[in-house]
Amino acid sequence: MMAPVSSIMLSIDGSIAALFVVFGLGVMVSRQMLASLRFFMWQASALTASALALAYALQAVNLLWVALITFTTKVIAVPLVLRWAAGEEVYGRREVDQAMGIPASVLVAAMLALVGWFAVAPVLPTLHGVPFAAINLPTGLIMVLWGAFTVAVRRESVAQLMGLLIMENGAFFGSIAIVHNLTVIAEIAAAVDVPIVALVIGLLIRSIRRITGSTRVGTLDKLHER
């Protein structure tokens, strides 16, 4: 069983979790691609802050590496890859194509948040010795659900990729509360795969844009074999 932590650290992590959710909602409902990317960067910053808070509260040195790698890859490297992949004209557009309006998306997001919370609730009593699990696990699962919903309703390939990335952020946000003693090598391997995946998908998006002149998923039928 872990040593108890102060209520101040729990409050700090709770505040970070609230910001994490707000930024994730921003990624999901933003009409402009650049705004969506900025919300993703802020969410990755919140993930970094949570890792730092847990590192201090739990005296877990490995979480310092997690924070450093997360900031380097998700706040700096991944946004640069996405900006390069899609081009400035995509981020200069004011509207992002999506299958559902913002009011309906917010309503679905609220329903998914309830689903995530009730899904985790039966597990939390078994983790009573893990002080941050009650905050990070529900928050992380909610973000995984929101990321999947973003992939489903967005029609831009870059926006769908950001949905996948906030799903990964959610999984990471929940996991650092219960598994914070991994070796540095394992943490590096888990974190470095994100910019690599973003780079590979970014190359595909760049090729699609060069051939079709668009990053909309609906234009992929132009790539069929002649």
Rank of each mutant, 00 (worst) to 15 (best):
S6H: 05
S11R: 14
I12W: 04
D13Y: 07
V22A: 14
F23Y: 10
G26V: 10
R31K: 12
A35E: 08
L37H: 06
R38M: 14
M41C: 14
Q43C: 05
A49F: 14
S50C: 13
S50Q: 10
S50M: 13
A53L: 06
A57K: 00
L58Y: 01
V61P: 02
L63Y: 05
L63I: 11
L64D: 02
L64T: 08
W65F: 15
V66F: 12
L68C: 11
L68W: 07
L68Y: 05
I69T: 12
T72S: 13
T73N: 14
A77V: 15
V78W: 04
L80T: 11
V81D: 04
R83K: 14
A85M: 06
G87N: 10
V90I: 15
R94S: 15
R94M: 10
R94Y: 11
E95V: 14
V96R: 11
A99Y: 08
G101S: 13
G101P: 09
G101L: 08
P103I: 06
P103M: 08
V106A: 13
A110E: 07
M111K: 07
L112N: 04
A113T: 11
G116N: 03
G116S: 06
W117D: 09
F118A: 10
V120G: 01
T126W: 09
L127T: 07
V130C: 08
F132N: 01
L137F: 06
P138F: 03
T139V: 09
L145V: 04
F149N: 00
T150A: 12
T150D: 02
T150K: 07
V151G: 01
V151R: 04
R155W: 04
E156N: 11
E156K: 01
S157Y: 01
Q160P: 00
Q160G: 10
L161K: 00
L164R: 01
A171E: 03
F173M: 01
G174C: 02
S175I: 07
S175W: 03
A177V: 00
I178W: 04
N181K: 06
I185D: 11
A186L: 08
E187I: 15
E187L: 15
A189N: 07
A190V: 06
V194M: 10
I196M: 12
V197W: 05
V197H: 02
V200D: 00
V200I: 15
L203D: 02
R206S: 14
I211F: 10
S214T: 15
S214E: 08
R216A: 12
L220H: 07
L220I: 10
D221N: 12
H224E: 13
E225L: 15
